[in-house]
Amino acid sequence: MLSGEWCVLEEGLPCIVMSVNAGISIFITPQDEYTFAAPDFQIHTTRFSYDDGNIVWRDSLNDIQQAQLHLCCKTMGITLQYLQSKNIDLRHFSLTTSSKQTIVEKDNGKKYKIGLGSSAAIAVGVVAAIFQLHDLDIEQAQNKKVMFNIACIAHYLVQEKLGSGFDIAASVWGGVTYYKRFSPQWLTEEMQRHGVVSVLDKDWPGLYCENLSFPENLRLLVGFVGYSANTKKLIRSLYEFRDKNPQKYLDKMREISVVVDSIKGSLLSPNTDELLGLITKNRYLLRDMNQFSYRKLETKELAFLADIAEEYEAAGKFSGAGAGDCGIAIVPKEKDSERILKKWQQYGIIPIDLSLSRRGAHVVTHGP
């Protein structure tokens, strides 16, 4: 995320999210029965059946595997239910996910998700693959909206209604997106009254997405600090503070949102010096939120990452919830990015070779 962490959880407040080229791949082929595989999680070909919005695994899965597949299971169920509602004949398929590009293996052999919104990307990819198999054009605007709605609902329900959907938007539309979340109260009430399918074709109150450009003279650097954050715990902790100190919390969110809107203006200008200064300001507003959480959002390693960026006349901050995962630096191309990357490594920060992706979910055809 470029700007707007945490404030995007509040209705009407924005963030700016960037889609990067660490892709999730979904492979789908027609088959005589439904099967699913996720080799990255040591889940090999597993059969399932579909019945009225529900996915039922026909082969034995342990509790850990079922938890790992919960999001894919929910996403496939809602997608097939939507197709049924449109009187589209369902086709059996074999679906395989690959998320290697969003995982880092450290020297000790342990593997870590690096906090790039991979679960959101998987949800979007699953919807897109099933749509494509059923001859729905995923580049068509209405279908993109429905893809967002399906993936967002699946992610929202699996994440215990805590997410804002910004990472879903990045995966659907790609590029740089100015985003405001939907009304969670409206969505919950509509689904309770009329069912999930009833909201899939609708425009959602509060939801706003606008594509922005990104200056060609700037480079994005991403560094992984070596440990992952528990986003759900962080959100609950922040919400606990919000419930006890509503005005203090909302004032801070509004401060951040003002910076987000200023960054949007700088991207439209563009004004490089102003943009870097605003990203730095966003960093310090987020650091102030350490007092709101059970643990620091800007940890020692994330602080090193940002300090090093500033030392070399760039701007750095944590990206996403904080407390681990990744930080970013925005660097003028005339500056020596390699010095930043080298110094990150000296502090144990792992550079991730990423760049802005202008495309969201799209089809790549293999074979003859």
Rank of each mutant, 00 (worst) to 15 (best):
F241L: 09
S198C: 04
R242A: 11
R236Y: 08
E240Y: 10
K244I: 00
S262V: 00
Y239G: 03
L234F: 03
N245D: 11
L250D: 13
G226P: 10
D201A: 10
I279W: 12
V258D: 10
G206L: 05
V260R: 10
N271E: 13
V197C: 06
P205G: 02
S269A: 10
L218M: 08
S266C: 14
F214Y: 12
L250Y: 13
C209H: 07
E216N: 04
V225Y: 02
V258A: 14
Y208P: 00
M253R: 13
V258E: 14
E216F: 01
E255N: 13
L218A: 05
N211V: 07
Y249D: 05
S262I: 00
V260K: 11
L218C: 09
I235R: 02
W204R: 10
P205N: 01
G226V: 11
L234W: 01
G206P: 04
V260L: 09
I263H: 09
L276A: 07
V222F: 10
D243C: 03
V222K: 04
E255W: 05
C209K: 12
N230G: 05
V260F: 10
G223T: 01
C209Q: 15
K233C: 03
S269E: 14
F224L: 03
L207Q: 01
Y249S: 07
S228G: 15
G206E: 07
V222M: 08
V197D: 08
G277V: 05
D261T: 10
N211M: 12
N271K: 05
P215V: 01
Y249M: 06
L234D: 01
D273W: 06
R219L: 15
W204C: 06
A229E: 08
G265S: 11
V199E: 03
S266V: 06
S213W: 03
I235D: 02
K233H: 09
I279N: 04
T272P: 13
E240I: 04
E274R: 14
F241I: 11
L276S: 11
D203S: 03
C209D: 05
D261V: 03
S213P: 00
V260C: 08
R236C: 03
D261Y: 12
E274Y: 05
Y239R: 13
V197H: 09
I279K: 04
E216K: 08
K232R: 04
L268C: 12
N245M: 15
M253I: 03
V259P: 06
K232W: 00
Y249I: 01
E274G: 02
D243V: 06
F241A: 04
I263R: 07
W204I: 08
